[in-house]
Design a binder for these strands. Structure first.
Length: 343
DNA sequence: GCCA
DNA sequence: CAGTACG
DNA sequence: TGGCCGATACTG
């Protein structure tokens, strides 16, 4: 999970408390995730508040007159409200300080890296005594991970690559991503059985920086295996992270850009674009609303929970419509609040 | 952890 | 199957 | 008090 603080929040000078607290709650979320699955919802709650603070325009201190006042903010409840006030008054959060003491705290930052989840980190710590990034780099060089079960060749390769890339954080400026996206589109369109292909993800949302390039490709199932092979042939990725018949994930070019491609039916194009365009928070909000209405959304469509009947999915517009929501343009699909019901 |  | 990742 | 996004997809 990547910490949600972005350039926007970094550039505003008023929100120093928000930034600091957002980071602390993100770290606390990592602590709870590390502690095991029974704490995973607590972890999610902290992660949500971290994101709320990162996206907030005004400084949180403007709302911190009382626990009740903070409680009114979505995602913030009594417990976290108290911690916010504690931080504003003392500069620290006791619970956080205690978590730091009892966990291998330096190790937890690795959770920001793709391939390192709670279970992986616990194994590294408990079986190999790894306490931080340097320990891990050394252990990898000395091939100490090979004996561990669940650490196959592919996982180790991906871990090494992710460790290397994490140093040179390589989000691209939007324009560069657009050029690269166009280049990839051109190459893939040259493949005969590809019926349609489009850019999705943060590139489609026109986010100021883009971390990876996401695409939705339309093709009938019997062509997909061959299409995946063809894509690999024309793109010549440096690495393939995962390949199945509905999904291809790879690292492309000198900049080591991650490219994710999802293969779907033509009638699933809308739902696949909706899913793959995100943002994650927007998707979760839509899926929650659907659930409240007795429906459920995935990348293949909207379904009636009871009958399983497929209700929509060909276009994004019909999906928002069916949910009773105003259509949201990709650029505005930023967070849960960007979803609004029709009047 | 938060929320209905 | 559990773990991890994707939006 | 109980649910928390997904009948996700891929790897080991």
């Amino acid at each position: 999970m990547v910490h949600p603080i972005n350039k926007q929040s970094l550039s505003s000078g008023k929100t120093t408390h928000n930034r600091a607290l957002s980071l602390i709650f993100h770290k606390m979320a990592e602590c709870y995730r590390y502690m095991g699955t029974e704490e995973r919802f607590r972890a999610t709650a902290y992660e949500n508040v971290s994101r709320v603070l990162a996206n907030m325009k005004e400084d949180i201190s403007e709302h911190a007159g009382s626990v009740e006042e903070l409680d009114e903010i979505g995602g913030i409840g009594e417990s976290i409200a108290e911690k916010i006030i504690e931080y504003l008054q003392t500069g620290k959060i006791k619970t956080f300080e205690e978590l730091k003491k009892k966990l291998p705290f330096d190790l937890l930052e690795l959770m920001d890296i793709s391939g390192f989840g709670p279970s992986t980190l616990r194994t590294l710590h408990e079986k190999l005594g790894i306490n931080n990034r340097d320990d891990l780099v050394k252990a990898l060089q000395e091939n100490k991970l090979n004996k561990l079960k669940g650490f196959g060749e592919r996982k180790l390769t991906n871990m090494k690559r992710a460790l290397k890339m994490e140093k040179s954080n390589n989000r691209m400026p939007l324009q560069l991503a657009e050029e690269e996206g166009a280049r990839l589109l051109r190459l893939i369109k040259s493949i005969k059985a590809v019926e349609k292909i489009a850019l999705a993800g943060s590139l489609r949302r026109k986010k100021e920086t883009v971390g990876d390039i996401d695409m939705v490709l339309v093709a009938v199932p019997r062509n997909r295996k061959r299409i995946v092979e063809e894509i690999i042939r024309v793109i010549q990725p440096q690495k393939i992270l995962a390949r199945g018949t509905t999904k291809l994930s790879m690292i492309v070019g000198d900049r080591e850009t991650q490219v994710d491609i999802r293969l779907v039916h033509d009638y699933e194009f809308g739902s696949a674009m909706l899913y793959f365009t995100g943002s994650k928070e927007h998707n979760i909000r839509l899926r929650t609303i659907a659930k409240e209405r007795g429906m459920k959304i995935n990348e293949y469509g909207i379904f009636d929970v009871k009958t399983g009947e497929r209700l929509a999915g060909e276009t994004e517009e019909e999906m928002y419509e069916l949910l009773g929501l105003n259509y949201v343009s990709p650029e505005k699909r930023i967070d849960a609040e960007s979803v609004e019901t029709k009047d």
